[in-house]
Amino acid sequence: MRSSGVTARATREPVAVKVALTVLALGFLGLFLVVPLVAVFAQALEKGWAAYASALREPMALSAVKLTLLTAGIAVPLNLVFGVAAAWAIAKFEFPGRNALVTLIDLPFGVSPVISGMVFILLFGRQGLLGPWAQAHDLKIVFAVPGLVLATLFVTFPFVARELIPLMQAEGTEEEEAARVLGASGWQMFRRVTLPNIKWGLLYGVILCNARAMGEFGAVSVVSGHIRGKTNTLPLHVEILYNEYQFQAAFAVASVLTLLALVTLLAKTVVEWRGRREVSDVD
């Protein structure tokens, strides 16, 4: 007993230090995370539930909800397909240029959201590289829904692949090889062996991708052209309300996005917990 007491003292801080550090950490998090979280809902409900509900029922808000769902509904599945494909090629095979591919996939993380939106204006805008072509084919991309989708695809591009690559690398290729030796076709191997092994990581990637897709502001703000009721997603709608000094309404819509963020955090925690439990099961 005595020796364990000695180690405990030698490898732990005095209680006073512990308490002080904990209070400091929680104070910082409280100030920077909890206060804003509470503030969103407090401001949203400042004028009561009726005002809150009417801000959400307004036609502009509803069309923003629809557009946000549409954008995410297109961007997330596409990124899912891309992410799985990229992770499969990168994690399970060796080929020249593999590291370069990983770096390039991560590029959008390093690009300011403003620039992420701007490149599509440079590409499809009236003076853009493909602008004349788009006009000739009567395609409205910039300041229209396709532009929003493209900008969202750009900013969320790395999310799924990034979650999956390390996971699939860690899992190696033995199980898939075993499935092949046992006669499984490519699809059978993927569906019955690969997919069950990556499902939590995949879900996690999709959740993060979705949160970003629905919440993206800078990039879509640049490409949207702010045509009310037509190219406004929820975050853009929040901005407009705020700039029009309709603070309560802005926060009401913002609270919906905040709830989405909280659900994302919850889902992430659950997925991590499940994933961790399965990993610990294996050992």
């Binding site: 030796v181 006669g183 076709s185």
Partner: peptide, 20 residues
């Protein structure tokens, strides 16, 4: 192809499907 060789292979670390 490995699928059609009719071999049984026992992997060093067994490669059991852990979700089954």
């Amino acid at each position: 192809d490995v699928r059609h060789r009719g071999v049984g292979f026992v992997f060093q670390h067994y490669a059991l499907f852990r979700h089954m």
